[in-house]
Amino acid sequence: MKIFISTDMEGLPGVNSWHQVEEKDPRYLGKYMAETVGWVIEGIKSSEFNSKIDEILVCDSHSKGENLSYDFTERDDRIYLVSGGLRDYYMMAGFDSSFSTVFFIGYHAGVGSIHGTMDHTYSTDVYDLKINGKHMSETTINAAFAGNHDVPVSLVVGDHALVEELKNEMLDTVLVETKKGLSRFAAIMKPKNVLRKELIEGTKIALSKTFKNAVRPYKIEAPYEVEINFKSTEMADESMLIPGLKRLDGHRVLFKTNYYDELLQTMLAVVYSATIGEDLGK
């Protein structure tokens, strides 16, 4: 059995502001990610299914993907680490249908969520992102990528607003809350020892549900129509250099595809090209 773990930072415990997840504040850089993922590893090792797990691939997926130290792999000889940027599928880099389950750790509420800690969807330049008319978050976009390979997401760890978004959307998935937002940049943090126990237990439950085939893959049926609403017009201007896009208005662009792998790659290209347009005006 192989486990794929995709990590982010905004949904981690102890984090509530952008400076805490950037290089200019080394007090936080990677500390809470390593600690939280470490508790998940504890849960795996204490699970009755531990001996059946051959590989744990951890995909460092915040910003440049350089938040977890290579030393983290010393915690277990089954841990492989995806590091660095400029990679296909970004938060899902290294994933394929050979994995049995997916864990999302430190994930956060989608853009526009009330009291979602640092809410956004793949970029703070995005005002809204829809697939087939449905409002999407990084969690549901990536879960559908896994679902396209018939692999379920059995554990999601993140802020209260994310849990609220998912509890009626991913019914079989184990959801563990790290904090409750008071605003975009303020939150009530769960006690560390309490969260550690919940994560260890939640990981064991997620593995049990996986082995019992009790978690259904999250799927979105093709064909796909992706609408991205940017915060300003120059972002949409720049994204139109990508073939296949249609301009809906000053802020919104749209593209269509029959393949989810192509959807994720194109979406990433559109979202990140938009930052070039923003920089041109500075």
Rank of each mutant, 00 (worst) to 15 (best):
V15D: 02
D237R: 11
A34L: 08
N258R: 05
G112I: 07
G147W: 08
N142W: 01
D125T: 13
P217E: 08
T101A: 06
K219W: 05
G14A: 14
E23R: 07
G181V: 00
G84Q: 10
A161C: 03
E227T: 04
E227Q: 12
H135P: 12
M91R: 10
K192T: 03
H160L: 09
E262K: 01
G30S: 06
A236W: 11
E262I: 00
L263C: 07
A144L: 07
S51I: 12
V215L: 04
A161L: 09
V215N: 08
C59W: 01
D150T: 15
K179T: 00
S273G: 06
S6I: 11
Y260L: 12
D88S: 13
T36G: 00
T140C: 03
G181E: 07
E22H: 14
K231C: 02
P152T: 12
S47W: 02
E169C: 11
E198V: 02
K256D: 13
V21L: 04
L264I: 10
S273E: 10
D237F: 15
E221A: 01
G281Y: 02
I276F: 09
F255P: 12
H149G: 09
G110L: 15
K282M: 02
G110I: 06
D96S: 05
C59G: 10
S61L: 05
H135M: 11
M33I: 06
V157C: 01
T257W: 08
S83A: 08
Y122Q: 04
M91C: 10
V226D: 01
